[in-house]
Nucleic acid binder design. Structure first.
Lengths: 225, 225
DNA sequence: TTGAGTTTGTGACTCCGCTCACAAGCTCGT
DNA sequence: ACGAGCTTGTGAGCGGAGTCACAAACTCAA
């Protein structure tokens, strides 16, 4: 089992387990934790927790559970969080600004190292303690400051070009907030967060349940004739 | 085929097709579009586009493609976007503020109708043209103003309680930005957007490729001995 | 009307991920 | 030392989702 690659679905859950473990460790609640408890905290089922953790190796003890500190360390290491990955935000509009001062990033060990834009209105100003620089300085900054993650928070029309500039500068990990499809070479990892798509998905399920309710209602009325 | 339920994965892609179709319709580029073209614009493969669209019904014409306007209408309808779903944001910190003024929502037809918080520092102030109200007024506002989507942008510790209040007020669709696991009854749809989890996933893949590169390097050196 | 060229709709196959269930292995009390 | 009671690790089975490939159905030119 050990040396099989970790499935994507598992990778996506490791940060959740990490958060739960940090909660436990912070409270000094217990030295070990069972898959059952961890599952409850992570909102998944216990078998899934065990299978996920087994991809990292056999770090549990039967009849006892998992050592919290040890597991914390292993997940941290596996996620590559023992080193820091400086990130740059491109696009300092509403969203970019909020991301720049979002405390959740620094709490999880991510450091926003630079901000870029193309508008003279914001270049030179400070946001969250960092100066906003011109996009043309991107490559230099990436090299000099070892930036390894690019966060795109531009309008959709600019997203593809910004992504290409990031890739050209040597960035291999991109998080895209712009509502646009962005293509990158296969050796680059890109993930997208699209806020209005999330709302549209919610809309679908809401609409569906309302449609079902309406149909039931119509049936009821027909039945009573 | 028609009356089978639409798979989750398909639902998640419909908004992407919608965006692509809006682009085409806006440019008045063409009356019809092929699955091939649509696939290119959506960043997926053509067979997937066809299968996805076939769940909505047989709206294409063989040898021709899909009528852009008609398909637009059908997807809009299926996603429930013909009616509007007023949303409330709970938590007017950094993120909540940005979401309140995020133009992407209104562009896609979602209206932020109310803002809530518990801190006296912000209650009464205006954000994005809306007054911030006390969380205790939530239920009343939901009923009076027909709010159907709740957006949680609070610190993680408050997320579960806020979710329960939303559910109690009658909200059945929740979008959670707080980095916390939130449990809701089965008739409530909840989706989460966790920004630092996204970065942690990127970190994993970046770390992995670097680890592979390092291993290769080590091998090379050993081999040259 | 026919045939060449296009494009959809979908059955068949494969792969991935989830869940179940249980043997293996641990602790602890007696 | 042993058995009762937990908890892990994982094989087996199942269902959802992606891809392939091709028949069906359309257009258009001659």
């Amino acid at each position: 089992m050990r040396h099989r690659p970790i499935p994507e679905a598992t990778v996506a859950r490791l940060p959740i387990y990490l958060r739960a473990l940090l909660d436990i460790a912070g409270d000094r609640r217990d030295v070990t934790v069972s898959s059952e408890d961890l599952a409850r905290m992570a909102g998944v089922n216990a078998a899934k927790v065990r299978k996920d953790l087994s991809y990292l190796g056999s770090y549990g003890t039967r009849g006892v559970g998992y050592d919290v500190e040890y597991l914390l360390y292993q997940i941290t290491r596996e996620l590559g969080l023992t080193q820091d990955w400086p990130a740059a935000i491109i696009g300092v509009g509403n969203l970019g600004r909020a991301l720049a001062s979002y405390k959740g990033f620094s709490e999880r060990g991510f450091r926003i190292a630079a901000l870029f834009d193309v508008s003279d209105d914001v270049i030179g100003s400070e946001v969250g303690g960092l100066p906003v620089r011109h996009l043309d300085d991107l490559k230099e900054a990436v090299v000099d400051e070892g930036i390894s993650i690019g966060i795109i928070a531009t309008p959709p029309a600019a997203a593809q070009e910004v992504a290409e500039r990031l890739v050209d500068a040597g960035v291999r990990s991109i998080l895209n907030f712009a509502p646009a499809v962005v293509n990158v070479p296969p050796d680059v990892t890109i993930r997208k967060v699209d806020l209005s798509i999330e709302l549209q998905i919610l809309s679908f399920y809401q609409q569906r349940t309302q449609a079902i309710a309406a149909a039931r209602e119509a049936n009821r009325r027909l039945g009573s004739l």
